[in-house]
């Protein structure tokens, strides 16, 4: 008989775990974003590469400093700020001056996340907080779009990118309008096939709907994303804009155009689904997604700006806590007339 001699480890049950952890989930989101990121660099060249890397590095550094200031251990290892950095970069116009990218990145993490208490405590999507700040502070720069697939995109930089801090950017003669702006201000529709594949102007990462959907499908298959949210958003946008289009096709864009243009895909798949800012039960997620979809159409059609995904998601983020309170599964065995004990 052997006498087991080691120290016994005492823990409370359960003694088994699923193996999922915050860092693996967040890392997988980064992986799912890589095709979109690569396509952004392919489409917009050096400018996108600089915007994306500046955005990511700024967010990582801001998180590190925030951890140091609040006396916590570094939280870079949970990968969540890497997502924020990438997502934030993907929402910016490719020709945005880098100093503005830095300012927005600091705001995103410091104001959007650290101030609320860090991971898990931020009610709003930090990447969108950063972008909303830039939209308010630099409205012209945030709506000036350099064209995609220029022949010299890998060898030359637009004059705006390296603008000195606190100076007004000078744009090259050629800028392009986004499909949404073309529709809003000139009633000019774009080819839906081109929209889906991404051969158009826009923010760095919003252009290829196809790659965004591939990334989303990967996360859904790994149970790391709620499919209810993007599906509800798509359904609401399609239904609402479809009804309007049916009433007056001249004034209102078609549902396919609405689905594949602007930041809708990127927002629906990667921003609205941020676990921290979205509701927890599937029922609440459906309602939350439907709300975003309706708001997007309202802002795009009747608002002053061509695009409304960002504000729609931020508004829905604010409703999340209430949705979670209202929509709960009925507790097993709870009786309707049960008075609070």
């Amino acid at each position: 008989m052997t006498a087991p001699a080691r120290t016994l480890e005492i823990r409370t049950s359960p003694h088994m775990v699923s193996g999922y952890s915050v860092d693996t989930i967040m890392f997988n989101v980064v992986v799912a974003l890589l095709p979109v990121t690569a396509f952004a660099v392919y489409a917009f060249g050096l400018a996108a590469l600089l915007v994306l890397s500046t955005a990511t590095v700024t967010c990582l550094l801001t998180e590190r400093v925030a951890c140091r200031l609040s006396g916590r251990a570094s939280s870079l290892g949970d990968w969540s700020v890497a997502i924020t950095g990438l997502l934030y970069g993907l929402t910016l116009p490719p020709g945005l001056p880098l100093w503005m990218v830095v300012v927005g990145g600091v705001v995103a993490v410091a104001l959007g996340k650290a101030l609320f208490g860090g991971l898990g405590c931020n009610p709003f999507n930090p990447a969108l907080v950063g972008r909303a700040f830039l939209q308010a502070a630099f409205p012209v720069a945030m709506t000036t779009w350099s064209p995609a697939f220029t022949s010299d995109r890998f060898t030359a930089l637009g004059s705006s990118t390296l603008t000195l801090p606190f100076t007004r950017p000078l744009y090259d003669a050629v800028t392009s309008a986004t499909p949404l702006a073309l529709w809003k201000f000139e009633r000019q529709a774009s080819e839906v096939g081109e929209l889906a594949l991404g051969f158009i102007g826009g923010s760095t990462g919003e252009t290829s709907a196809l790659l965004i959907l591939v990334g989303g499908a990967y996360l859904v298959a790994r149970n790391m994303m709620s499919w209810q949210i993007p599906v509800a958003i798509f359904a609401a946008v399609a239904a609402f804009s479809g009804a309007l289009h049916g009433l007056d096709p001249e004034t209102y864009a078609s549902p396919t155009f609405m689905l594949f243009s602007g930041g809708l895909m990127l927002g629906a798949v990667f921003m609205a689904t941020d676990m921290v800012g979205s509701p927890m039960t599937s029922g609440a997620c459906l309602l939350y997604g439907a709300g975003i979809g309706m708001l997007v159409v309202v802002i795009r059609v009747w608002g002053g700006m061509p695009e409304g995904v960002m504000y729609a998601i931020l508004l829905a983020n604010a409703c999340t806590i209430h949705l979670d309170r209202w929509i709960r599964p009925r507790v097993y065995g709870a009786t309707a007339q049960e008075a609070p004990r």
Binding site: R6, L8, T12, S13, H15
Partner: peptide, 26 residues
Amino acid sequence: GEVGVEEDVTRVFLGGPMMGAAAPSL
């Protein structure tokens, strides 16, 4: 000992792994 548990046993629990309790002593 009878079932040939090796020397370096570190964790023993009675009952299943989900609701069982870790043995505090042998």
